[in-house]
């Protein structure tokens, strides 16, 4: 799934958190990649919302897990209220805290229903890789905000955690966006 996204992505900001921060660098090295790991538990899409509001000309894609969403469920309501057209949240649903050893999360939580009930109009569930590949062009170009649930199974071993300095990540992203250092 990440390879499909990386192949299609052009100038979108891509924010990753938790397990996706380990996997996304295997398929992408782009000035507008942003590793959110350790920036705040569960808050990747909140950060992405702020960035999307600040840069309406730029698509912002957030890759976050279902465990992370449960840490800040209110984020859905805020996205429903303020989410701009350039925000796309891809929820990687694996029903576990994969990065910490695969501990299970709430098995019955319906993330599509939660997002709709929170006021997000464009919510969908994409069940397989072929459908994701077909729908990705519209996900990246059509106005949102959009919230997409993607059931995923990780079939490859996770690489070790090796992240850059937090400040350097911010400086790099702002440079990629053409914003001068403060």
């Amino acid at each position: 799934m990440l390879r499909v996204l990386a192949a299609r992505r052009t100038d979108e900001v891509v924010i990753t958190t938790m397990t996706a921060t380990l996997q996304w660098p295997l398929v992408s090295s782009h000035p507008l990649d942003f590793d959110f790991l350790a920036f705040g538990m569960g808050h990747a899409s909140d950060f992405g919302l702020g960035l999307a509001l600040a840069r309406p000309e730029r698509k912002v894609v957030v890759l976050k897990g279902d465990g992370g969403l449960l840490m800040s469920l209110g984020s859905l309501v805020t996205m429903g209220r303020y989410g701009p057209p350039n925000l796309l949240v891809l929820l990687l649903e694996n029903r576990s805290y994969e990065m910490t050893g695969g501990q299970p999360i709430a098995p019955k939580a319906d993330f599509v229903a939660l997002a709709r009930a929170a006021g997000i109009d464009k919510v969908e569930r994409i069940e397989d890789l072929g459908a994701f590949e077909r729908e990705l062009p519209s996900l990246l170009t059509e106005p949102g905000p959009r919230f997409v649930v993607l059931p995923v199974i990780n079939s490859e071993p996770l690489p070790p955690v090796a992240h850059t300095d937090h400040t350097e990540r911010v400086v790099r992203l702002r440079r990629g966006l053409g914003i001068s250092p403060p």
Binding site: F47, G50, S75, T78, L173, R174
Partner: peptide
């Protein structure tokens, strides 16, 4: 909805200029 969410939102706004 909560303050931690708000700080992350504000950080995104600042990073975006």
């Amino acid at each position: 909805t909560r303050e931690g969410e708000g700080i992350a939102l504000a950080a995104g706004l600042w990073v975006g200029g």
